[in-house]
């Protein structure tokens, strides 16, 4: 009985997450973003620094007349920062929180490909113990022997969090 119910949950997670993902590299890992969240990919360009913002906010850029904030994912994930390379890109994503939708750019090391991940290749996020929050990970995608971390971008870049940090800075 118990086994059966777990099977059902596993199946629903796989089915819920199956679909196309844009994969990119950050440090040594590969991550996946739901393709529907991605608006476009642009080349690295000059970013205007904005004072009194969290350190992972690199600044703002001009996206065809609109000013959008750009977040450095390396800093956000507390990785070692590194110099921008030829392959460094900005992925423009749409983040939606409860009532508003926001366009933001995320700086990543390299864009890989668009993958169609079938439901049987998606697994639940393994538990790292109660104290570690893995809410921002949707699940793990297995592809050609690699594991790709599927990100819930809405949770990675929560608008509330940025605003909270700012109000502290005030």
């Amino acid at each position: 009985m118990r086994e059966e119910s777990t099977a059902i949950i596993e199946k629903t997670i796989g089915e819920r997450l199956a679909g196309k993902y844009l994969t990119f590299r950050l440090a040594d890992e590969e991550y996946g973003l739901e393709i529907l969240k991605v608006q476009e990919i642009i080349r690295m360009q000059a970013v205007t620094r904005v004072p009194r913002t969290p350190d992972y906010v690199r600044g703002v850029i001009n996206l065809r007349g609109k000013v959008i904030p750009v977040v450095e994912l390396r800093k956000k994930f507390s990785f070692m920062p590194c110099e921008d390379t030829e392959k460094t890109c900005i992925i423009v994503v749409q983040i939606s929180s409860s009532d508003l939708s926001v366009v933001m750019g995320i700086i990543i090391d390299e864009v890989r490909e668009v993958l169609d991940i079938a439901s049987e290749n998606i697994e639940e996020t393994p538990s790292f113990g109660a104290s570690i929050n893995t809410d921002f990970i949707l699940g793990m995608g297995k592809m050609n022997g690699d594991v790709k971390i599927l990100l819930d971008i809405d949770k990675v870049l929560s608008i509330k969090e940025i605003n909270d940090i700012q109000s502290i800075a005030k």
Binding site: A46, T48, V50, P51, R52, T53, V57, G59, V60, I61, N62, G65, K66, V67, I68, P69, I95, L100, V102, V103, M104, L157, I159, I162, N163, Q166, A169, K170
Partner: peptide, 26 residues
């Protein structure tokens, strides 16, 4: 221009402006 909803209000900065070279100035 506002700095995008993602940043909310930044103290000391009232917005951004796009300059003729396409870059953003605060």
């Amino acid at each position: 221009k506002n700095l995008g909803n993602g940043l909310g209000e930044v103290p000391g900065i009232s917005g951004g402006a796009i300059m003729s070279d396409g870059s953003v100035s605060l």
